[in-house]
Design a protein around this nucleic acid. Structure first.
Lengths: 332, 332
DNA sequence: AGGTGCGTTTTCTATCGAAGAAAAACAATA
DNA sequence: TATTGTTTTTCTTCGATAGAAAACGCACCT
């Protein structure tokens, strides 16, 4: 999990993750290619995205300086990104005249790259979550024990532990060692989370500055509809969770209140830890989607009071509907 | 500012800050005293506190093992703390029979020690806040520039910067460098903060699990009264701010909802940055105190609805009453 | 001029070892 | 046996350093 928790109010100029280590290109690039850093890889995707948004056609000249300004970086990583795109065949390099676009931009290859926070951190994060939820971890342990147990690097463990402590899931002991909060996935923690969100999220919709991002709303609705059509498989749980998080987070973003947004993001992150193994029932997924759509309907109609009321109800019913089999799963 | 943001729901077993560097005792302890670590210094204070709470009298035998259990540490730091207390003359060491209390415990020497998060971090934090608010810092800079400008260590700068970014005050640029959020102390940020708190804090009082800590309420009231009597000096601003933060935070703690508590703590921390130079008007301080007391009254009478309403009003009036002279001051 | 190519400087991050503290194990004493 | 004194082991932090990227600046091309 990266060091970055909050995302910007406006995503476009959000800082990108930076690479931590070089993969000393060998398998992927047999030639002596200088192995693109993470920033460069990210920029490559963003450049395509930008080109698509600009509607640039074949032959379009990519001016380095403009790209620098667009993304707020120096020419070095931009050139790296362009080189990468050239390798992929998206653009072509012309001597002393820089790069030009070859074909027109098709599918912008997943901006997801933006979201892959340090793989290593994330893996450990997930591993700890799993081990903890499965009761494989004692309530107290030292960093070193985690290092040994998961074969991770000390620095990684340190970062993850800090993250967890910020989320209030783990706590430093006075001397050495850390202790997991007893109620890490207890019913109480869940109840508190819902109580908090029930206060917060309806209020979000009623903020004076609230303004629905209609483009997003449409996309979100489409995504929900598409999802609803798919036959349910447990594999979809991850996607459902992400859709869910996005829904709540984006609404918070529309409120224009950075602190509310931050609070919602925090809750999302927390839930992603607590529920790493989701256990949604099909019916709950369906009704959750229906409720989301109803909220969107109300918002698009400009009826924020109703939307807020629906949101409150949504968080209440989610609360009740959590699977009785395992106390630690809850959707929303 | 330490690495720790959240404090526990129950303070007693909260993890203590651990020392970062040894001061290689020389000036303070001419003898070859092994220079107590921060943990040890902290424990010394806590031991006195414990003794006082126990009503221990002169001659009381301090059993190491018990102290270990009381504070959740091993004997090593406990012994260090006792040695320290012996140097201070509070206890006496008897060969092979451990330590005994000398006189009865008087003023427990400031548990503040618990709160001095890493002095170094805090200083830098404050220095940056000040420089920023005075416009001495550009909106963008690198870690190294801060290192040079403030003569701090790179690691310290890194920690503080991370803190600030978590508070949403500063943000990493995609490549190298950080940029301060433009509206760091803008009216907009303040308005959003108040909007958030206006939703959150009244709701805190209405939580089903809310239970007033009556001992604290009394102490808090006394503190307010004492403060109100003092003739106002600008020097008191810091104390006022702390009293203020404590008031809001403790109420959140009483809600029993860890996420609400976390949110309030976060807001407090944020305000401590934004308002490093407070600019309260005397009259605002007075009315703020009055409002706090009214809220306490209502809570002690068990009338939480009224208390919530008063809290809402309190946050509204604080909002309006912020000094018109300088946009960046706001009390609450 | 506007832009690219390329070398130089600066900034950042990762890693490793050493030293400081804490924990744990052991020995000694009332 | 319950505590304290001492030693050993383990954990954590701090500092130095090297190597990778990014920022910068200058020459060159069109």
């Amino acid at each position: 999990m990266g060091r970055r928790i909050h995302r910007d109010m406006n995503e476009t100029d959000s800082a990108m993750q930076r690479g931590k280590k070089q993969v000393t290109a060998s398998a992927s690039t047999p030639r002596g290619a200088p192995a693109p850093s993470r920033l460069q890889a990210e920029l490559a995707g963003r450049i395509l995205h930008l080109l698509k948004a600009q509607g640039a056609g074949p032959g379009h000249h990519l001016v380095e300086h403009d790209l620098c300004q667009a993304f707020g970086v120096s020419r070095t990583p931009i050139r790296g990104a362009l080189k990468l795109l050239a390798q992929q065949g998206a653009v072509e390099s012309r001597a002393n005249r820089g790069f030009v676009l070859l074909g027109s931009v098709k599918a912008a290859p997943q901006i997801e790259a933006a979201n892959i926070q340090d793989e290593e951190d994330k893996q450990l994060f997930v591993a700890i979550a799993e081990a903890r939820n499965l009761g494989r971890l004692p309530t107290q342990c030292t960093q070193q024990e985690l290092v040994r147990m998961f074969g991770a690097k000390l620095a990684t463990v340190g970062r993850v532990l800090r993250q967890l402590s910020e989320m209030g899931l783990v706590e430093r002991k006075p001397g050495n060692g850390w202790s997991f909060i007893a109620s890490i996935d207890s019913a109480a923690a869940q109840a508190e989370s819902y109580a908090f969100r029930q206060i917060l999220e309806p209020a979000v919709l009623l903020q004076p500055g609230f303004e629905l991002d209609r483009a997003w709303a449409q996309a979100c609705r489409a995504r929900h509809i598409a999802f609803k059509r798919k036959p349910w498989r447990p594999t979809l749980a991850v996607e459902f969770f992400e859709m869910n998080s996005d829904f709540h987070e984006q609404l918070a973003r529309c409120s224009g209140n950075r602190y509310m947004l931050g609070a919602v993001q925090r809750q999302n992150q927390l839930r992603s830890f607590l529920n790493y193994h989701w256990d949604y029932g099909v019916e709950r997924v369906q009704s959750s989607i229906t409720e989301h759509m109803a909220i969107l309907d109300a918002l698009e109609a400009g009826d924020r009071d109703t939307a807020a009321e629906l949101m409150r109800g949504h968080l209440t019913s989610s609360k009740r509907a959590r699977s009785p089999k395992r106390g630690k799963s809850f959707a929303a």
